[in-house]
């Protein structure tokens, strides 16, 4: 379970914040628990790929932005309810989500989902696969023949593999890769699953103007190569545009 949160977090203001208060602030909602996309750094601030990208997008769109964290479970209900204006939380663009909210164009290529296990030889079709509750990976495993075991947080899914509760964990490759790189007992399997689309910024369907601004900003970062530079810095395993 990932639960509701409205965001009480004081999560630091973006660099371009000292501008005059002529324009109201755009509140950027994120989860803050999904490195390298977004996480809370040692200082207690939102950090990661989406923080850096979002600040740059706001600068290009000449918007004043502030970051707030919200639990994953209620991140969409709180957006449509107006508690913040955008979602940048490693959220893949899916048809179901697209029915409820709008997405900008994707700012990452579709990220494959990878399996991480204690050895190469685990049986991912008949074994026990851990996934975070209410993720596209959990939905995928539920449909495959494997036995799904769901945990509330990504942290717990990794712990389940380490302590033998699950044979493997299925999650976004860019989330698993840094963990596997530092822990020699964990390996990424060769088999990958293409489940979600690319990651995009979520907005309310009635916020067409804001969506156009961010779309233009993303396009300009794609055009001048700065987006690829950010992807290379934070998501080395992900394909550039």
């Amino acid at each position: 379970m990932k639960k509701l949160i409205l965001s009480a977090a004081a999560l630091a203001l973006s660099a371009g914040m000292a501008l005059a208060a002529s324009h109201s602030t755009i509140r950027m909602g994120t989860e803050g628990a999904y490195p390298p996309y977004n996480f809370i750094n040692d200082k207690g601030e939102v950090d990661g790929f989406e923080r850096e990208l979002g600040d740059e997008l706001c600068k290009r769109a000449k918007l004043k932005c502030t970051w707030v964290t919200n639990e994953w479970d209620s991140i969409i209900p709180n957006l449509v309810s107006g508690n913040y204006d955008t979602i940048m939380a490693g959220m893949s663009i899916t048809p179901e989500r697209d029915e409820v909210i709008d997405f900008t164009q994707a700012y990452t290529q579709p990220d494959p989902s990878a399996y991480m296990a204690l050895s190469d030889s685990v049986d991912i079709t008949g074994g026990v696969i851990a996934a975070q509750t209410n993720t596209i990976q959990a939905g995928f495993v539920a449909q495959s023949g494997a036995t799904l075991v769901e945990f509330a947080t990504p942290e717990e899914t990794i712990a389940a593999v380490r302590n033998g509760e699950a044979d493997a964990v299925l999650a976004d490759k860019s989330y698993l890769a840094p963990i596997a790189a530092e822990d020699s007992s964990l390996v990424l399997l060769a088999k990958e699953e293409l489940i979600g689309g690319g990651v995009g910024m979520g907005l309310r369907e009635s916020d067409g103007e804001l969506k156009a601004k961010f779309n233009a900003a993303i396009q300009s970062m794609k055009d001048d190569g700065t987006l690829n530079a950010l992807i290379a810095k934070w998501l080395p395993d992900s394909a550039p545009f």
Binding site: P36, F39, N41, D47, G48, E155, I158, I179, E182
Partner: peptide, 8 residues
């Protein structure tokens, strides 16, 4: 939660 050296 466990922290990797890349992010902390």
């Amino acid at each position: 939660g466990s922290k990797t050296a890349r992010f902390s």
